[in-house]
Write a protein that binds this DNA or RNA. Structure first.
Length: 216
DNA sequence: GCAATGATTTACT
DNA sequence: GTAAATCATTGCC
């Protein structure tokens, strides 16, 4: 993996941080990238307010399997962003209420993406609490919750990740506890592909979502 | 044009 | 545990 080092000044303190670049997301194995994203830090700057959180739950989706919106290279107005280059944001509205944030991976034309399902708040926690109108673990423990907390909506759809786009991911070498795997949540419609163990989460994190994962 | 629906969350009983 | 909220997208007429 290739990581770009950049010097940033934040809160009057100078320190090195590493923003993931497109090479990180270009890998052909979306499942491997999904697992690798655990512990990375997602940032947004919305309305001049910076928020960030440690990624603790992800899911992988691929054009090769039925749970993916671009299964069989299904290319529609909504899914066409999945065919964009790696590192592009894919945000869509679910149930008319919730914005779900994904990152496109693999080479341009290979429709794969990673859904960010939960984060542990780091910077801007008060901003997140104000947007969510609540405190505690419900702040960001789910894909719709974290999007609301971080101000992510359809305006970010098709945005390439990067500091200048106000949405980016950093490697801060945060410690990761044990990683666990399970089937993805809410994809029973995918039949046999619903059982793929493509969900990754930090096993003991209190910030992981509570959705059911068994289809028995 | 129109009806169905969802990679969820929340508020109920 | 069950159900309502709410709308962009999709597929079919």
């Amino acid at each position: 993996m290739v990581i770009t080092s950049e010097l940033f000044v934040r809160s009057g303190i100078c320190f090195m941080s590493k923003i993931l670049n497109n090479k990180f997301f270009e890998h052909e194995d979306v499942v491997l990238i999904a697992e690798s994203l655990l512990g990375k830090v997602l940032y947004t700057e919305v309305d001049g307010l910076v928020t960030s959180g440690k990624i603790v739950e992800t899911e992988a989706y691929s054009f090769r399997e039925k749970a993916c919106h671009a299964y069989m290279n299904r290319n529609t107005n909504r899914t066409k962003v999945l065919f964009e280059p790696a590192g592009t944001s894919y945000v869509y509205l679910c149930y008319g209420i919730h914005h779900l944030f994904n990152i496109v991976t693999n080479k341009k034309g290979k429709a794969e993406a990673i859904l960010i399902r939960a984060i542990e708040p780091l910077e801007g926690r008060e901003t997140m609490e104000a947007r969510r109108q609540l405190k505690g673990y419900a702040l960001t423990s789910g894909p719709g919750k974290l999007s609301q907390a971080m101000g992510i909506d359809l305006r970010f759809n098709t945005s390439p990740l990067g500091r200048h786009q106000n949405i980016w991911i950093e490697e801060q070498n945060l410690k990761i506890e044990e990683i666990a795997t399970s089937p993805r949540i809410g994809v029973a419609y995918a039949e046999e592909d619903a059982l793929l163990p493509w969900r990754f989460y930090v096993k003991d994190s209190k910030w992981v979502s509570k959705g059911r994962t068994d289809y028995s």
